[in-house]
């Protein structure tokens, strides 16, 4: 791969008490690609992306994003680095007490401080149109369905123009039609905003739809790495169990 790595992880270890979740993970995310991370529940997929964004501190190893070691950054510099990273939470994590507009304004006011109110409104309308929910501007999160919440959450993430997107199980808990729509949105975001993304999932359909490259995590290590085709043609029993 000739492209520059935007995320470089080397020998990452993370444990909670006596339970070792990540024993030795090394991977690179290259500019402009969608990397899908597969793995069984509890294999440490979510822990991996939480270490990338600094929500969890790695026990050992290095996590570099745009050549900045996340494990060594102070709070201020970590905050600055996070402005370039978008994180879509599994639950959506919309702020319950705020309307959709306020949810979108929240990161925008803090990260893009120089925008005027008019420019802010235009940006919010643009991302809402991109996720197909322009009419949800004044709704509360409690008035939205699961799929709509995911879309708004995606809109809140892309509204600040992140360079790296981290998706934590974006299609979990959604019906097949909505899952397909979210998968299409992920590829649209990649094309339109030129983002590099790590997509954590165990939804094979979503993985097929979005992946340029795949990684399988098992027992806290990278079990297999390759193109989607390599995974499809694999005879390994663990890989096959996912693709059956």
């Amino acid at each position: 791969m000739n492209a520059k790595p935007v995320v470089e992880i080397k020998n990452l270890k993370k444990s909670f008490g006596n339970q070792e979740v990540l024993t030795d993970v090394s991977l690179n995310l290259y500019e402009g690609e969608n990397l899908v991370v597969l793995g069984k529940s509890g294999s440490g997929k979510s822990v991996l992306i939480k270490c990338i964004v600094g929500l969890l501190r790695a026990d050992a190893g290095s996590v570099k994003v745009f050549e900045n070691d996340v494990t060594a950054l102070n709070r201020k510099n970590l905050g600055l680095l996070r402005q370039k990273i978008g994180f879509l939470f599994q639950s959506g994590a919309l702020y319950d007490s705020m309307t959709v507009k306020q949810n979108l304004e929240f990161p925008l006011r803090r990260i893009k401080k120089d925008l005027s109110e008019k420019e802010r409104d235009a940006k919010i309308n643009e991302v809402l149109e991109n996720v197909g929910l322009a009419d949800a501007l004044h709704k509360m999160p409690s008035q939205l369905s699961g799929g709509m919440r995911k879309r708004i959450s995606l809109a809140r993430t892309i509204v600040v123009d992140p360079m790296v997107m981290l998706y934590d199980e974006p299609t979990t808990g959604l019906d097949p039609v909505t899952s397909d729509e979210i998968s299409s949105l992920i590829t649209e975001v990649q094309k339109k905003y030129k983002t590099s993304s790590i997509i954590i999932t165990h939804d094979i359909k979503c993985a097929h739809h979005t992946a340029n490259r795949m990684i399988m995590l098992s027992k806290g290590e990278v079990y297999m790495e390759g193109k989607p085709k390599d995974f499809e043609n694999s005879t390994d029993p663990l890989i096959r169990s996912f693709f059956m």
């Binding site: 929500l55 709070r75 996070r82 994180f87 929240f106 990161p107 803090r110 809140r156």
Partner: peptide, 9 residues
């Protein structure tokens, strides 16, 4: 966590 990753303390 969402607040933290959007650069808000």
């Amino acid at each position: 966590d969402a607040m933290e990753v959007s650069s808000t303390n």
